[in-house]
Design a protein around this nucleic acid. Structure first.
Lengths: 149, 149
DNA sequence: GCTTGACCTCAAGTGGACTTGAGGTTGCAT
DNA sequence: ATGCAACCTCAAGTCCACTTGAGGTCAAGC
């Protein structure tokens, strides 16, 4: 066995929709650790593609690379992860995702309550005065809605 | 009229849950432009609090400060915005928010499809191979779920 | 064997959103 | 009048997620 064809960094970049420099960066950040060829070139196993996709997906959930790296450290680095490994991980993130969606929905509700209420000129506004901590959460989420490249 | 008591930067910071330096920064970014006292200190009208809340809310939607600034430029700077002004603005963002929620829900569905499927070891995974561009969107959304702080 | 494109490392740069610090001024209470 | 907290400006620093660049190596086709 072991007849798995390994992928070059360029191939992984192309197929995962990232760039070579991003893959270098991920490696430096401890998210990937490809083998090396005799000539010191990176050689990725196929499941690196999944790992990258997972990283991207997690980022889209608002999870930082540091957290992703931490989570991935729980996975066997050189072994194809088991179903259980994966489930544990992704169900944790599923919960985070649920929470995030709920937060946005609450925000939307508040926004709805404000649209047309002349809110900005009123004194008691739910957006203005949300009681709960809407504010600050890291550096803020950025343009998640932007699905262009 | 005009008997509106103006707020100092410290007051605005305290009441809006930001910091003085953030307010300075917002001002430098064209998001706020308070008047000045005779002694050159910032004096905010009450609705600056709403503006700040709006900025925070918009950030939570994943809108960058630059975009927020642009949107706010459509509002009269020195006048309390009208109901119509506000509605126009917030309903645009409402749409963005809907889109974002939908995106996250789709992601969640994909994630659900993957949990327990042993995905990471399979070849055809919807997360791994989402077809649509899940990837890259700005610098990525960060820890939106984190409502602590 | 030579060219060419893909690869390597390491250092520095970028952009967004702030924060920190130095050095000086204002305003309110006593 | 004076003390002191809160204010001012401007420059630089920080963190994250990358990107860019310089200078050099590797591998596959001709």
């Amino acid at each position: 066995m072991q007849g798995e064809k390994l992928l070059s960094v360029g191939e992984v970049a192309r197929r995962s929709g990232t760039t070579v420099s991003t893959l270098h960066f991920y490696e430096a950040s401890g998210l990937l650790s490809p083998e090396r060829s005799s000539g010191n070139q990176r050689r990725y196993r196929r499941d690196a593609l999944r790992r990258v996709a997972f990283i991207r997906a997690a980022q889209a959930l608002g999870i930082s690379l540091a957290e992703i790296a931490e989570a991935l450290r729980a996975l066997p680095e050189q072994r194809t992860p088991t179903k259980a490994d994966w489930s544990r991980l992704s169900s944790g993130w599923r919960a985070a995702l649920d929470q995030r969606i709920a937060g946005l929905q609450a925000l939307r509700d508040r926004l709805d309550g404000c649209i047309g209420c002349g809110c900005l000129s009123l004194r008691a506004c739910r957006l203005y005065n949300p009681d709960d901590a809407l504010g600050r959460s890291g550096t803020g989420a950025r343009r998640l809605a932007d699905h262009s490249r």
